[in-house]
Design a protein around this nucleic acid. Structure first.
Lengths: 223, 223
DNA sequence: CTCAAGATGTGAATATTTTAACAAGAGGTG
DNA sequence: CACCTCTTGTTAAAATATTCACATCTTGAG
């Protein structure tokens, strides 16, 4: 088995790891102890060749004529995703969407925790949502440091997105999930990922209108 | 200019169209009448060569030494996305996230409208959120037909995702945006797109932890 | 009208991702 | 133990996507 350090994981593979991990946990909960790439393929709707190729980047995880050990795979992917370390997350923007996220709070992933929330609107300050108190923006920098927060989720509207992201970056956070679609500027070392519901919806509708009776959008169902 | 029918639009391009469209509208609102691929590149953080290549699939939209006419581009992309036809959308699942979506209701896109909402929980039925009344699941099939609904958004938890999607499909809808991450089975002609917040977050954190000081995750900033 | 500056659209090169196909190896049965 | 079946890991091929680099065209200034 290759050591993890020398491997270059393709982007496309990296994006599928959380999906793999989630399904493996579900399988384990249902008492499934081993899985073949073909079965897994049917479950997650990713071609079996892609699954085997993806897995192979992390070593020889399976055994010919047998398949993969679910608990071993979980062990491997858990290390890759570093799930044994709690990720403490800050939520910025406690409007409708922010509240929904707080109420949900990645409950099924015990290592992902929104531990504090900020909002610029004075009326919001002090509200307690699912155990988390909404605080003023001015508290962010200090709390991020004190609470060991590594990641932020911003649900602030596009109009204030850049200025809020600047504050987030200034607080020392290096990973941001942004629900405002407008592209913002961040220093090179900061990773930012956009979740753009309108774009997703428009793409979906476009695909539906133009490629009906074609292949599945994300991944083909075959195999 | 080639006729639209004979062109095969690459998937990667198709996914960027809504982004292009959104930014072009913003530019137009700010009174910008023309744009060069290099300027646009800086704005949306997609390399200029990619932009030009993408645009070229829809004909020769620009002029050498001049750039692109913003209003003409909007016209073209508006046709591609068919934004002149209202897309009537059903929301299924009126919990926290569903309510947030209803309250927002794609306000900035006048052609995307959530026009009705359904929930299985009797306590929800009858509630009015941002002008939309929550109805029982049993009303869906009839309303979808009567209201000319083409698309559904499901915020129903994974545990009931498949059964709800079955009902959505049965009502005649062919495009589904699903916030439950569990992959569901749908007939071939139905397009389904997943929005999986946990996966996005885990991927982001993974990238942040493993590729710090590397390139931007989605698109490089350069150019 | 002429010319310099500058931007497009696109062939060609490169990079990335997916898919097919199969040799090699493991498992389980008799 | 021998053998048949099955599945992996991977090599090679194909498909898709990005990027470079420039011939060609347009603009706008003089």
């Amino acid at each position: 088995m290759k050591t993890e350090e020398e491997i270059k994981i393709p982007n496309a593979t990296a994006k599928r790891i959380p999906l793999y991990y989630r399904y493996l946990k579900t399988l384990q909960e249902s008492g499934v102890e081993r899985i073949k790439s073909k079965e897994f393929s049917q479950l997650i709707q990713v071609p079996s060749a892609t699954i085997r190729r993806d897995f192979s980047h992390f070593g020889e995880l399976g055994r010919s004529g047998y398949g993969y050990d679910v608990s071993y795979l979980i062990e491997v992917f858990s290390n890759i995703l570093n799930t044994k370390v709690e990720k403490r997350i800050a939520l910025v923007g406690a409007g409708n969407l922010g509240k929904a996220l707080l109420n949900n709070n990645f409950r099924r992933n015990e290592n992902l925790n929104i531990v504090c929330a900020f909002d610029a609107n004075p009326e919001m300050i002090g509200q307690k949502i699912n155990g988390v108190t909404v605080r003023p923006m001015s508290d962010m920098k200090e709390l991020v440091r004190k609470e060991g927060i590594t990641t932020a989720i911003s649900t602030v509207p596009s109009s204030h997105s850049q200025e809020v992201v600047d504050q987030i970056v200034d607080s020392g956070i290096t990973a941001i999930l942004n629900f405002a679609p407008g592209r913002v500027k961040v220093p090179e070392q900061v990773k930012i990922q956009y979740i753009d519901l309108t774009t997703e919806l428009q793409t979906l509708i476009y695909m539906d209108e133009n490629f009906t009776s074609r292949k599945h959008f994300n991944f083909s169902n075959q195999d």
